[in-house]
Each structure stands twice: as structure tokens, then as C-alpha cells.
């Protein structure tokens, strides 16, 4: 966070906050939190460098050999000579490669939708907290309305109306998630906007937008980061559910959920690997992100020292 030297009040707020180094050090004090973070970083790296880590591009049909279809984990490819560590699907696609590429889509959709929702939600929440009055009541009424519907139902409604596709899934997830951010941002914003430094900025004649962006927003960031982390995991989980149901991402861009769904029919004939391994990848991803979120909550909220 840059220190605003022109404004003495911002400076003062900066001094009372705990220094970044302390926060990082206290994060790593928890072995579970550290484990979650390491796992999460590994997963993200695996997704980013998927083309370098996998034997084949699972969606380049020229690289698939139908003769290698439905191979058990560990069996060797007849065509290429390398072992399929996690087996192959019905079209001879290496499951390991497919999972790495699926992770890219799952993580991409999760992160993109959560950040978009965070931007929209936080803006609306802070404006509501700062502005008050009729605007606040309209925004918060919308938030309540949104939160009174279960997430899966809202997403299903949007996808039923708009049809499937990555763009529509992201839109659905943003619509599901923005309200959580708005509620948190308003709650924190209400507390902050009553503090002296905001009052002082008013007196100094700082324009509203500047107070919102430079003073209110930076001080509301910590709880929003915690929510955002957990929401990424929820978005990934919901996207996987929708894709599993066949209303999410299209078959050409399979996320983990769609991989699980594709392999599901083979599970009854004992070919468990086609959906169990993508399922485990999904599970580990969600748990890792949740562990990080839990730890961040403890670190960023000093009152809860347990």
C-alpha cells in the first residue's frame, strides 16, 4: 500500500496498521495454513505450466490414439511409449494432461468471476456505506433479495435462460457472488466511515471519490481479501457442479467438473480413474484454497487470536 505523503491522516492510519512483514510471519506460524498455501501455489503453477508438464495436448485430436482408450493408470502407451500415470479416457486422452488443462479452466473461471464480483460488490457496498440514504437502501434491498435465493438456483436460472458457455458461467457466478462482497464491504465501510480520519478528510475538502478510493477502500481491503479467497473456492465448486450437470462449460473447453461428468458413466463398469482423479484434483484445489482463506481470516483479524 503506497503511503500518501500529502495527506497526514492517511499516514497516521498507515502507522497504526500492522506492518506487512509481521502479517506474513504470523501467517506461516500455522503449519496447516502454510501447507494450504504451498499446495495452492503448486496447483496454480501446475495449471499455468500445463503445456510443459503434460505429455500431450489433450485437445489436439492428432495427438490422441484411440487404441490407447480406457487404459488403466500406469499402462504404457502403444503409440508413444510413455506411461499414462492416471490412465486414459474413452478416446485415449491422457487423464493427467486432461486434468492439468482442466485445472486451467476451473481456476480461470473461479478467479475471474470472484475478482469481477469483488470489484462490483465492493464498489456498491462502499458507495452504500458512504452515501447512505435512499441509494443505500436500494442497494441493500438488492443484496438481501439476491442472498435469499440459493446460489445453485440463481446460476441455474441464468444458464437456463442464456444457455451454456464459459462467458455465461462467469456471468452467473458473478451474479451469485457480488452480493456477499457488497454486504461485507458495506459492513466494514460503515465502521470505517465513522472514524476520525474520514471526518478529517471531509473537513479538508477532499472530494468524495478520492475519500472512497484512497481512504475508505484501502482500509476495507483485508476482510475483502478473506471473502475473495473463499469465494474463489466456492466459484470453482459451483462451476464444477454446473458443468457436471451439463449446463456449464461446453465440451470443447472441459473444466474439472466436465471431466468428472464425462468419466461418470464409466464408473459403473469399474473404470473409476476417469472421474475419480479429476474429482481428487478438484477436491484438493478447493480444500487448499479454503485452508488459505481460513488462515488469512485468523491473521487479518487480530481479535481472534486462537
Amino acid at each position: 500500500m503506497p503511503v500518501d505523503l500529502v495527506d497526514p491522516f492517511a499516514n497516521e492510519a498507515e502507522e497504526t496498521a500492522r506492518p506487512m512483514r509481521d502479517l506474513i510471519r504470523s501467517y506461516f506460524r500455522s503449519p496447516i495454513g502454510t501447507f494450504g498455501l504451498v499446495l495452492m501455489v503448486l496447483i496454480v503453477l501446475a495449471a499455468v505450466f500445463a503445456p510443459f508438464l503434460s505429455f500431450q495436448n489433450p485437445y489436439d485430436l492428432l495427438q490422441l490414439d484411440i487404441l490407447d482408450g480406457q487404459l488403466k493408470p500406469g499402462e504404457t502407451s502403444a503409440a508413444y511409449g510413455y506411461p499414462y500415470m492416471l490412465g486414459t479416457d474413452d478416446q485415449g486422452r491422457d487423464m493427467f494432461s486432461a486434468i492439468l488443462y482442466g485445472l486451467r479452466i476451473s481456476l480461470g473461471v473461479g478467479i475471474l468471476s470472484a475478482t469481477t464480483a469483488a470489484l462490483i460488490g465492493a464498489t456498491l457496498g462502499l458507495v452504500a456505506a458512504y452515501h447512505g440514504g435512499r441509494l443505500e437502501s436500494i442497494i441493500m434491498r438488492l443484496v438481501d433479495f439476491q442472498l435469499s435465493f440459493p446460489t445453485i438456483l440463481v446460476a441455474l436460472m441464468i444458464l437456463a435462460v442464456m444457455g451454456k458457455g464459459i462467458g455465461n458461467v462467469i456471468l452467473a457466478l458473478v451474479l451469485v457472488e457480488w452480493a456477499t462482497f457488497a454486504r461485507t464491504a458495506r459492513g466494514v465501510g460503515l465502521v470505517e466511515s465513522r472514524k476520525d480520519y474520514i471526518e478529517a478528510s471531509h473537513v479538508l475538502g477532499v472530494p468524495s471519490w478520492r475519500i472512497l478510493l484512497r481512504h475508505l477502500l484501502p482500509n476495507c481491503i483485508p476482510p475483502l481479501i478473506v471473502i475473495a479467497t473463499v469465494q474463489v473456492a466456492r466459484a470453482i465448486s459451483l462451476e464444477a457442479t454446473l458443468s457436471f450437470l451439463g449446463v456449464g462449460v461446453p465440451i470443447t473447453e472441459p473444466s474439472l467438473g466436465l471431466l468428472i461428468s464425462n468419466g461418470y458413466q464409466y464408473m459403473f463398469s469399474g473404470m473409476y480413474w476417469m472421474s475419480v482423479f479429476p474429482g481428487l484434483a478438484l477436491l484438493v484445489t478447493i480444500v487448499a484454497i479454503n485452508l488459505v482463506g481460513d488462515r488469512l481470516r485468523d491473521v487479518l483479524n487480530p481479535r481472534k487470536d486462537t
Binding site: 473456492a233 465448486s237 459451483l238 464444477a240 457442479t241 457436471f244 450437470l245 467438473g257 468428472i260 461418470y264 464408473m267 459403473f268 469399474g270 473409476y272 472421474s275 475419480v276 474429482g279 478438484l282 477436491l283 478447493i286 480444500v287 479454503n290 481460513d294
Partner: peptide, 22 residues
């Protein structure tokens, strides 16, 4: 209970089928 919150329902259902049915 944290697992109960964070595991996707369809995933748990799939595991139930794999374990108890298959």
C-alpha cells in the same frame, strides 16, 4: 463439518455411489 461445507455435493454423491453401490 468444514469438509461438509466445502465439498461439492455432486462429488460426495459420486463417492457414495462408488463406495456403497459399485
Amino acid at each position: 463439518s468444514i469438509l461438509g461445507f466445502s465439498l461439492p455435493t455432486f462429488w460426495v454423491g459420486m463417492m457414495f455411489i462408488l463406495l456403497f453401490s459399485v
